[in-house]
Design a protein around this nucleic acid. Structure first.
Lengths: 212, 212
DNA sequence: TTTATTTATAACCAATGGTTAGTAACTAAA
DNA sequence: TTTAGTTACTAACCATTGGTTATAAATAAA
């Protein structure tokens, strides 16, 4: 039988997480203050420090579940047999872009995982694992798409593809347009970018074969 | 005959600008404090506010001259007759990347020109002019490269190219590797990206022609 | 009821960007 | 030379923030 103490602290922790998640999404991590979160959660701002080491830990604990989910989604798309690899790549790109646009705070964390944190169950290792995992997944899908060996050129292609995705996100990071409208407006351009890259990769591959 | 008053204030202002420029470059805009700048400049931190409205104004006044210079450089490359447009594109990309990597603070300003500032001689208008100017220049060079009309497809191509450049920059924004080493390591990848994009654009164009 | 444990808050701290009041230095006029 | 005015600069102050420490409140156990 859970006692009131346990349930009270659990409830407080969850409330803080929920409120923080909402506020971060709405106003951006940097501009939300701990006092604001506390007020909305109905507690003192110092209570937050009973459960979370600092502000960044809060963001981190909000991020990892969603990130794992994204990674899972991308993996599921990857192993689908019913679609060709070029379409997989488009779907993966779309999911990644969509996720990052919704979760702009998390995107920053994803890009800037601090390597200063070696305590706390090696969270950087986990987030790095997920990052690397997604990069490698992208690499595999590109490899399948191009029917090429796993070599330096594939790495460079994957990087280029990755730059493009992240360029898109960073271009619209501070855009205040509603997401659904933004995605509707720009998805054709995003898809074009993927197609152009694949075409370019194929041509580059051809060139390499012709010079060898 | 300039009096001591005038020369003294001019000197103070320039010292502050110089010091700020160095510190921003070295440690990043966000992590440099006004008190730190003041200390290095040999004045009180409140003196800074005699000359500059706020911290952002300081960054802005440091940024615009360099940005104008970059824009000028890119324009000069554009009008060069001695090189083909594909090489122009590579040179322009290289200059832009190099500039942004050196001036990461300014890059942020470039990407995030605040629209909240309508006082102060319309600086947002100026920075927007430069941004738009550079985007249009890029568009022109891509157009020449591809020998295509100025249409929606060209705009989408230019956007894609722009995403790529900015993806590169944002990927390495917090990288602490010395710039010369970073550029040496990655310039081949950056050039490959440009080539891939151009190849892809050409193929896309071909497809469009074939379906019309 | 008293004591121990857990949860939470209030008081406090250092630091920051920025504002306001006061002082020092310089120049011009008497 | 002295006085008044102007300019450059500083110190005191402010509100706010993330975070720490001391204290209070709530709950469970003896």
């Amino acid at each position: 039988m859970v006692n009131k103490h346990d349930s009270r602290s659990e409830e407080t922790k969850n409330t803080i997480l929920n409120v923080a998640g909402k506020l971060f999404s709405k106003k951006g991590y940097e501009s939300v203050t701990m006092r604001e979160i506390a007020k909305e959660a109905g507690c003192s701002h110092t209570t937050i420090y009973l459960y979370f080491k600092d502000k960044e830990t809060l963001l981190h604990q909000l991020t990892m579940p969603s990130l794992r989910e994204l990674h899972q989604t991308l993996q599921e798309i990857h192993i689908m047999n019913s679609i060709i690899s070029e379409d997989k790549l488009k779907r993966i790109s779309h999911e990644y872009l969509h996720f990052c646009m919704i979760n702009r705070n998390m995107y920053s964390l994803l890009m800037n995982a601090k390597s200063t944190r070696v305590d706390e169950e090696r969270p950087e290792l986990e987030i790095n694992k997920v990052r690397i995992g997604m990069f490698n997944l992208l690499k595999q899908v590109i490899q399948e798409c191009l029917l090429m060996p796993n070599n330096d050129l594939l790495l460079a292609f994957t990087r280029t593809f990755y730059y493009n995705l992240n360029g898109i996100i960073s271009t619209y990071l501070d855009n205040h347009e509603p997401l659904s409208i933004l995605m509707e407006r720009l998805t054709p351009t995003f898809n074009l970018a993927v197609e152009v890259l694949i075409l370019g990769f194929r041509e580059k591959l051809k060139q390499k074969v012709e010079t060898n």
